[in-house]
């Protein structure tokens, strides 16, 4: 089994880099049974999730994640990843703290997809 921590590590880096560069490209990380909970809005399915992420009311975004931790979680080799960090949007200079919990599942082809994605702002602005 691949080292779940290395998977989590790579995933987090890839996820935020993609998010900040062009969040439409996150589509490849979700499947139709994926579930995003953005603040209190639940959305299921890759298409809807990417639509939601793309339509967030900002143009530029920068994630600065501070911590990431992971544990193996489910029967099929799932990985629970919890990230905390700060994000900057557009010209806003005050970072907002967030936490994001992912549940990654293997896609059967040697890779992983996001099954759960739970995003939450925990501190509005410093």
């Amino acid at each position: 089994m691949a080292d779940f921590q290395a998977v989590a590590d790579q995933f987090v880096q890839f996820y935020y880099q993609t998010f900040d560069e062009n969040r439409q490209n996150l589509a490849t990380l979700y499947r139709d049974n994926s579930m995003l909970t953005f603040e209190n809005t639940p959305i299921q399915g890759a298409a809807g999730i990417v639509e939601k992420l793309s339509s967030l009311p900002f143009q530029k975004v920068l994630h600065k994640w501070s911590t990431a931790d992971a544990q193996p979680s489910s029967e099929g080799g799932g990985i629970l990843v919890m990230v905390t960090g700060a994000l900057l949007v557009d010209e806003e200079q005050k970072p907002m703290s967030y936490t994001q919990t992912f549940q990654l599942l293997p896609d059967g082809q040697g890779s992983y997809y996001v099954f759960n994605d739970i995003f939450r702002l925990v501190y509005p602005a410093a």
């Binding site: 909970t37 603040e39 209190n40 809005t41 900002f58 949007v89 557009d90 907002m96 509005p124």
Partner: peptide, 11 residues
């Protein structure tokens, strides 16, 4: 409000 993102109650 002042936030670029809305703050919502718990789900």
């Amino acid at each position: 409000g002042v936030l670029p993102l809305p703050v919502q109650a718990a789900d």
